[in-house]
Computed example of a mutant assay.
Amino acid sequence: MKIIVFANHLAVLPALGHFQKNDWLQAVISTDKLQGHNVQIKDYCSRASISFYQVSRKQLHEDLVLTLNNLQPDLAIMFVFSYRIPEKIFNIPKQGFYNVHFSLLPAYKGPDPVFWQIKNGETMGGISIHKVNEDFDEGEIVMQQQIPFIPGENWGICNNRYAMAVQNMLIQFTQELYSGNNLPELQAQQNSTYYKRPEKQDLTINWEQMSAGEIENLINAANPCYGGAITYLNHQPISILEVTPATLSSTADYKPGMIVHSQPDSGIFVACKQNEYLRINVVQTTDGILSGFKLAALGVQAGQSFETVNIPEPNLT
């Protein structure tokens, strides 16, 4: 079996290793947007002498069509790929072109389903393998696996867990095709929903409107892929990467976002709606990644407040 993998995320590496071990992996294709830790895909292919292509949107519609017609793959599998696959490509593989998606489709269609599921406080997620057609995440679902979210896990931990689970799914999936078995079309068990890629407003903490649990979910969803959830302190942006729920004996009615305790030996505690509190564990500022203890030691004091929106700089011209 000759397999082409389209991937832009390093979570694909376990699956690449399996395909390579079975001598099935014909080539790996990434986009020209490959960057950061995901460059490990290119490095892996270089070390393993696997054909690797990086394509622009234009090349996807032109040069790559010729390349795939020459390779004549049996199967193509897509795993986080930011360009829409044209029909003249997804019809080339003899046994089909399939996409791996980290949700129980048709729920949470879109480019970052893990972010939105964690942010929305879902307790059950999963992985879907579906056929690729002209629309994003719309093709027939042929395999699914439910996977519960671990309370308190962040985006990175969840993606790593899913990457390992996907390897086992793909082993089963490819073995079924290799054996000549037909894959059944599964009936949808979820309502259809679509979520766009998160923008700045989606990543910003609204202390007045969000509960402590919702704030924690947002922070976990944004760590590490978006550098944490955004807030402001002394009119300066600060990203919060980790918090834990906290209990304080005070009966005072603090304004949401107010720092109610700040000591170098115990850290920083902030008030939320409905007399709930969060302990600030890890933040990122222009000074670097800091613990709440360090932030307190640097002079952040009780009585200061995290702000929901940035206050515009004064016009000095």
Score class of each variant (00 low, 15 high):
51 S>A: 15
76 A>V: 13
42 K>Q: 15
88 K>I: 11
88 K>A: 11
54 Q>L: 04
47 R>C: 00
74 D>I: 02
56 S>H: 04
65 V>G: 08
58 K>S: 08
41 I>L: 13
101 H>E: 06
101 H>S: 04
104 L>K: 05
61 H>D: 11
67 T>C: 05
110 G>S: 06
59 Q>G: 01
47 R>L: 07
86 P>V: 05
47 R>Q: 14
92 I>K: 10
71 L>F: 12
90 F>N: 09
65 V>D: 13
94 K>I: 09
48 A>T: 11
108 Y>A: 01
73 P>R: 09
82 S>P: 11
79 F>N: 13
85 I>G: 05
80 V>H: 11
61 H>Y: 05
67 T>K: 14
72 Q>F: 00
76 A>S: 14
68 L>M: 15
96 G>E: 09
93 P>T: 10
105 L>P: 06
78 M>C: 15
111 P>E: 07
95 Q>E: 12
93 P>L: 05
82 S>G: 00
103 S>K: 03
103 S>R: 03
40 Q>R: 13
77 I>G: 09
103 S>L: 02
114 V>K: 04
100 V>H: 09
76 A>F: 02
115 F>P: 04
112 D>F: 00
117 Q>D: 01
64 L>P: 04
84 R>F: 04
41 I>R: 11
52 F>W: 13
77 I>M: 07
54 Q>C: 10
69 N>R: 15
51 S>I: 11
101 H>A: 03
82 S>K: 12
58 K>R: 09
51 S>G: 04
44 Y>R: 06
112 D>R: 00
63 D>I: 03
91 N>T: 15
65 V>K: 15
57 R>C: 01
89 I>L: 15
83 Y>E: 13
78 M>N: 13
105 L>D: 07
65 V>L: 11
42 K>N: 12
63 D>H: 08
58 K>Q: 12
104 L>E: 03
66 L>I: 15
46 S>V: 01
85 I>M: 12
82 S>C: 04
100 V>S: 09
43 D>N: 12
117 Q>P: 01
118 I>M: 02
78 M>Q: 14
41 I>C: 09
112 D>G: 00
41 I>N: 12
45 C>I: 11
58 K>E: 14
96 G>W: 07
81 F>W: 07
41 I>H: 11
90 F>G: 04
110 G>E: 08
87 E>A: 13
82 S>L: 01
103 S>F: 02
112 D>L: 00
57 R>P: 00
114 V>E: 03
87 E>H: 09
68 L>G: 11
74 D>C: 01
91 N>D: 14
85 I>V: 15
45 C>A: 12
97 F>N: 10
45 C>V: 11
44 Y>V: 02
101 H>L: 02
77 I>A: 09
97 F>I: 05
43 D>Q: 14
64 L>D: 05
99 N>D: 08
56 S>T: 15
106 P>M: 02
47 R>G: 00
81 F>C: 06
89 I>Q: 07
51 S>F: 08
42 K>D: 11
89 I>T: 08
